[in-house]
Design a protein around this nucleic acid. Structure first.
Lengths: 109, 109
DNA sequence: ATTTTGCGCAACCATTTGATTGCACAAATA
DNA sequence: TATTTGTGCAATCAAATGGTTGCGCAAAAT
């Protein structure tokens, strides 16, 4: 069953793979060398990441380079936006509250 | 086994619960009313969200109010930051490239 | 005091998941 | 041409997952 991007990044190994190929595309073997797991396991993870378009593959001969699609990560950012507004509002409200308290303290001196 | 925040938001139902209680704390029954699932299923999800500190609970009599801890969402934002820098760099580079092309086009006219 | 309501927990179940092993195919190398 | 290397896929397995049902306890309502 095809997974969404949140399910894709739920697994720690896949998150590590994403971080690994963020700056430079890598092949399955090169990626597997960085993990204590089989190449087939890495291949499985890459398939999941490819399915939800987090990653694209470019074949060069028998080697396949997997590249991170950072723009796809924006989908997570977009989902976070609805909460970012809330924690920013709370921070702003806290700021205002603190400023008010300081003003009152000065007036009382 | 205790889950991390990424595993917590991997499930669509839990993401929906998070969005639901983002602005206002709600009780399990109130939350369950918004879903086509049992109250016990919702209770299970709330336990997972509580375990990874995405949510806190405040008991009032026999009712329990579950509140979203938006500050905990920053953990996801923090993880995204390493990629945000990349997609911003690429955007900047694209901007520069486009500007260069436009300048060249004007010079040739 | 009794009944109703809110709610978590355990047991159960079907499904999904993540890793391994084995295999097969294509490209690169000797 | 033969061998090696890169790689995906299928089968298998144990563990995890998400939902349901049933139960029990505490608080609220009657």
């Amino acid at each position: 069953m095809r997974r969404d991007i949140f399910q894709a990044i739920a697994d720690p190994t896949r998150r590590a793979i994403i971080a690994l190929i963020a700056l430079q595309a890598m092949t399955p073997n090169a990626i597997a060398e960085q993990f204590d797991t089989t190449r087939q396991a890495v291949s499985k993870h890459l398939r999941i990441l490819t399915e939800c378009e987090l990653v694209t593959q470019k074949q060069q001969g028998r080697e396949i380079y997997y590249q991170l699609q950072v723009n796809k990560m924006k989908e997570i950012d977009k989902w976070l936006n609805q909460f970012r507004k809330i924690w920013e509002d709370r921070f702003d409200n806290l700021d205002k509250y603190l400023a008010k308290i300081q003003a009152n303290a000065k007036n009382k001196k």
